[in-house]
Amino acid sequence: MQHTALDKNSPLPLKGSRLSTKQIQKRRRFKKNIPWLIMFVPVVAYYIIFKYIPMGGNIIAFKNYNFTDGIWGSPWVGVDNFKLLFTDPLAFATIRNTFVIAFLSIVVNFPFPVLLALMFNEVRKQWFKKTAQTLLYLPHFLSWVIVGGLVITLFAQESGTVNHLLQQWTGETFPFLYKPASWLALFLASGVWKEAGFAAIIYLAALGNIDPSLYESAALDGAGKMRKIWHVTLPGIRPVVVLMLILGMGRVMDVGFDQVYNLQNPIVSNVSEVISTYIYRMGLQGGQFSLTAAMGLFEAVIALALILATNAVARRFGQGLW
């Protein structure tokens, strides 16, 4: 601090005129910036090439793309591709499935981390807490290939362990993976299994910030365990809960490719096909680049709108992200 203060006030270098001090500061700033700018050049190149050029590449959603003419040469078709998205039954079902699955995921996934955090918070034995946390965080690190592999092998009709047990108890097996309702249940449950434990960390952090004296005064007032949770713990984590709920709503369009792709099968495709898997199958495998680019752009725009909207709501709660 002393150092800069000295520079500003020193009359020596250019006889103290205001302009020249500014010039010196400018030059000094430029000199400081040289190494940073050199460092930053690859980053700018990276973002232009790998993020902003593909963003521009979305213009093929308004064209009829073919390989020989390329992105620039292919003929314009206006919004025909978007019209097709809402008239083609398969495309429309895909959009509907995406909304349904994403919405259900948010609703089902939401309460478990909060519950787990509250439960962890009441555990006094440290070894038990550590062990339980270690086990519950573990699935977060497994990829959807592993989780999908587990679900498919465990619930397979002829060879799966679950159906073996079911047969011993009831004498019958059940095609869990091939009925839309049970497939959806497995899909949602696998999401909870994988992420609920790890997502509890955020709430645990919030719980750690609650003033302990609040519990003491609640105890003095004769509050039991449940009343303490209801009147002290829950209000204490409410801001985080609201924030996470809002953030979750902002991700309504975001059904991960890995999760769906690793769990779905052709028999339940009428409920399991979502935008990301549709783009993979119809676009990358089927060559319908313009149609699927339109689908992708539609998804990205809705997602952007949702994030902006939820952030506006979050601001009302004083929790805005920007």
Partner: peptide, 16 residues
Amino acid sequence: VFTMIFSSGVIPQYLL
């Protein structure tokens, strides 16, 4: 940050 909230899409990425 904008690239975080607006994705460029799988198809244009693939063509790139």
